[in-house]
């Protein structure tokens, strides 16, 4: 039974991947309402495999809502979202499997306070991927080394600084070997002196070719790493361009205004 189902899923994935050949994420005409308030207004956005996308925009413009739709922490009301070949629908089967391919890093870290750093990293490996404890620990230590925090593996989240916690959160997401990583303002809750250590880890990840969608206002990071910058306002994408063009010569007035505010 099990192999048959997996086989069928692979077929479906192959088929859709051919259709949208290089797309890691495909967003088509997506709208979303919270009650009567429209948070997303017919957003369309494609992210290619290996692409690094930065999303910015004023508070309440729908940035979080958009990337949370990509792993269905929010469901969309209209439009189509395809993630590495699978179309996402409310209440779909196999959503957990899709989510295992999509790592997410939150503004507030959201580490599990009752688990050690190591157990934070191995929880999903063991309980979702059913990998035995020793093998899971090995994977976790590898990823913790990658974010330079392996020596803290036995500690609890509350014993770490914000920057350290966020690096653990990145390692935890990487343990699942995701194809796509989502970052929702990963440095906004950090003290200024800790921002760099997190951005450095993200930059390294980008250089290794990870597909990344980052909501961030760190313009230095965007310039250095992003292939494309997207500006959102009032639930819609207003402008998208390569970072040089976006920061050097933005087209839209609202973009100009926003960038001016950022500099102050």
């Amino acid at each position: 039974m099990e192999p048959e189902r997996t086989e069928r899923r692979t077929l479906v994935v192959e088929f859709t991947q051919k259709a949208d050949s290089r797309a890691a994420v495909l967003i088509e005409g997506v709208s979303k309402w919270f009650g009567t308030f429209q948070a997303l207004d017919k957003v369309s956005l494609n992210v290619a495999v290996g692409e690094r996308l930065v999303i910015c925009g004023p508070s309440g413009s729908g940035k979080s809502t958009l990337i949370r739709c990509v792993n269905q922490l929010e469901t969309h009301d209209e439009g189509r979202i395809v993630v590495s070949g699978a179309e996402l629908r409310p209440g779909m089967r196999g959503l957990a499997e899709v989510r295992r391919d999509v790592g997410m890093v939150f503004q507030q870290f959201n580490l599990f306070p009752h688990l050690s750093v190591l157990d934070n990293c191995t929880l999903a490996l063991r309980r979702a991927r059913k990998i035995p404890k020793d093998a899971a620990n090995q994977i976790a230590m590898e990823k913790l080394e990658r974010v330079h925090i392996a020596e803290q593996a036995k500690k609890y989240p509350r014993q770490l600084s914000g920057g350290q916690q966020q690096r653990v959160a990145i390692a935890r997401a990487l343990c699942m070997k995701p194809k796509i990583m989502l970052f929702d303002e990963p440095t906004s809750a950090l003290d200024p002196e800790m921002v760099k250590e997190v951005l450095d880890v993200m930059t390294a990840l980008a250089k290794e070719g990870m597909t990344m969608i980052c909501v961030t206002h760190e313009m230095g990071f965007a310039r250095e790493v992003a292939d494309r910058v997207v500006f959102m306002d009032k639930g819609a994408i207003i402008e998208e361009a390569a970072p040089q063009k976006f920061f050097g010569n933005p087209e839209h007035d609202r973009t100009k205004q926003f960038l001016k505010q950022l500099l102050h």
Binding site: N71, L73, A96, E97, V98, R99, R100, D101, V102, G103, M104, F106, Q108, N110, L111, F112, L123, A124, R127, A128, R129, R172, A173, M176
Partner: peptide, 15 residues
């Protein structure tokens, strides 16, 4: 409990 706890678990692919 903070809603982020559940969300972090779901995002990792736990049911």
């Amino acid at each position: 409990l903070d809603r982020g706890q559940c969300e972090a678990g779901l995002a990792l692919g736990l049911n």
